[in-house]
C-alpha cells in the first residue's frame, strides 16, 4: 500500500478548472517534488491532500485512509506547512507549538517532550519565548516547519518550504528533509530546481492542472539538450585550433564555441542521443597536440527541461 495515493483528483473554482484529474502514488522513503509554473495547481493539490479543500471529484488516501470518508485519520498521519506559512503571530514560539501539540492529542509531559524535540530539530532554541510576529521570516518558517513535525508524521506535505530562507538555512532544511526521508513519504513543491536535485527522489511536473512528467530527476535531465555534453577547455588561443575537427567524431552532433575572455579555447560538444563522447574528444585533442586544461561532462540542465516541457504544453492549449 502506498502512503499517498491520489485518484483522478479534480478541483474546479467557479469558471477555473485548477486541477484536471491528477493521479500519483508516493511510497514510504520517497521525496516527491512538485514542479510547475505559477498557477499550475500545485498548492491546490496539496490543499486537497491535507483535507483543507474538498475535491470536486476524485479522491485520495493517506496511509490507506480516504481523505473524504476518513478525514480525521488521514489528518493525524499528515504534517503540513501551507504555502505562505501561516502561524499565530500573537503567540510565542513555545506557546504556539504547545497549542499544536495539544491539538494533535498529546497531554502533560508528552507535550513538553514533543515540543522540545521539534524546537531542537528546527534550531529554535534561541527564540523559544519570543512572540512569533517579531521573528524574522526565516525563523517564522522554521516555526512552521517545527509545527508540522511535532507528531513525527509518516506523511509530510511542504508547500515551498525553503521560500524566503537564506542559503545556509535552505541547506539546513534540505538536509533535514533528507535525514527524515527514510521512514516518511514527503511531498514538497518548489520553484528551485536545484532543490529537486538535492532532495527529491522523484519529480512531477504539473502545468495547467495536469501532470506532464513523473520521473526521477536524473531521468528528467536526460531529456536536456545538455545531457552528456562535454565542456572542453584547451590551452591555446583561437587561431591554432580548428573546432570543426571535433564535429567529425562519431558521437558528436554539434560543437559550440563559448566565449570566455581568456586566452584559451572553450568548446561545448553536444553528443548524439545516448553517445558518450568525452573519451574520444580528449583522444582527438591529444592526437592533434592540443593541451586539454579541463574536460567536464554535464548531467543536464533541469531548468532547460522544465522550460521545454511547460512551454510546449502552453503552446498546445
Amino acid at each position: 500500500m502506498s502512503m499517498i495515493e491520489t485518484n483522478k483528483l479534480r478541483k474546479v473554482f467557479g469558471p477555473i478548472e485548477a486541477v484536471k484529474g491528477v493521479s500519483f502514488r508516493v511510497e514510504k522513503g520517497e521525496v516527491l517534488g512538485f514542479l510547475g509554473p505559477n498557477g499550475a495547481g500545485k498548492s491546490t493539490v496539496m490543499r486537497m491532500l491535507t483535507c483543507f479543500l474538498t475535491p470536486t471529484s476524485g479522491t485520495a488516501t493517506i496511509g490507506g485512509h480516504d481523505i473524504l470518508n476518513d478525514s480525521m485519520a488521514a489528518r493525524r498521519l499528515t504534517g503540513y506547512v501551507p504555502e505562505s506559512n501561516p502561524v499565530y503571530g500573537d503567540m510565542t514560539t513555545i506557546g504556539f507549538l504547545r497549542f499544536i501539540a495539544e491539538m494533535r492529542g498529546y497531554h502533560g509531559k508528552e507535550i513538553d517532550e514533543r515540543v522540545d524535540r521539534a524546537v531542537e530539530m528546527c534550531w529554535l532554541g534561541d527564540v523559544r519565548s519570543q512572540i512569533i510576529e517579531t521573528l524574522s521570516k526565516g525563523f517564522r518558517r522554521r516555526v512552521g516547519l517545527a509545527q508540522s513535525l511535532l507528531h513525527d508524521p509518516p506523511v509530510l506535505i511542504l508547500d515551498e518550504p525553503t521560500d524566503g530562507l537564506d542559503p545556509n538555512q535552505k541547506h539546513e532544511v534540505r538536509s533535514l528533509i533528507r535525514r527524515m526521508s527514510a521512514d516518511k513519504s514527503i511531498v514538497i513543491s518548489t520553484h528551485i530546481l536545484e532543490e529537486v536535485e538535492a532532495v527529491c527522489s522523484r519529480a512531477i511536473i504539473i502545468s495547467n492542472g495536469r501532470i506532464l512528467e513523473d520521473k526521477t530527476p536524473t531521468d528528467l535531465k536526460i531529456r536536456s539538450r545538455r545531457h552528456g555534453a562535454v565542456n572542453l577547455v584547451l590551452a591555446h588561443g583561437d587561431g591554432s585550433i580548428d573546432p570543426a575537427a571535433f564535429r567529425n567524431l562519431a558521437g558528436v552532433r554539434e560543437v559550440e564555441k563559448v566565449t570566455a575572455g581568456d586566452n584559451r579555447t572553450h568548446l561545448t560538444l553536444f553528443p548524439k542521443p545516448g553517445a558518450a563522447i568525452c573519451g574520444d574528444a580528449i583522444g582527438l585533442a591529444v592526437e592533434k597536440g592540443w593541451q586539454v586544461v579541463d574536460a567536464r561532462v554535464e548531467s543536464g540542465d533541469l531548468n532547460e527541461v522544465f522550460r521545454d516541457i511547460t512551454t510546449r504544453e502552453g503552446e498546445r492549449t
Binding site: 490543499r47 491535507t50 483535507c51 483543507f52 480525521m72 489528518r75 493525524r76 499528515t78 503540513y80 501551507p82 505562505s84 501561516p86 502561524v87 499565530y88 503571530g89 499544536i100 491539538m103 494533535r104 492529542g105 509545527q147
Partner: peptide, 14 residues
C-alpha cells in the same frame, strides 16, 4: 486574513 485558517482546519479538528 492571516491564512491560519488553513493551519487550523487541516489539524485533526472538525
Amino acid at each position: 486574513r492571516s491564512g491560519t485558517i488553513e493551519l487550523l482546519l487541516t489539524l485533526p479538528v472538525s
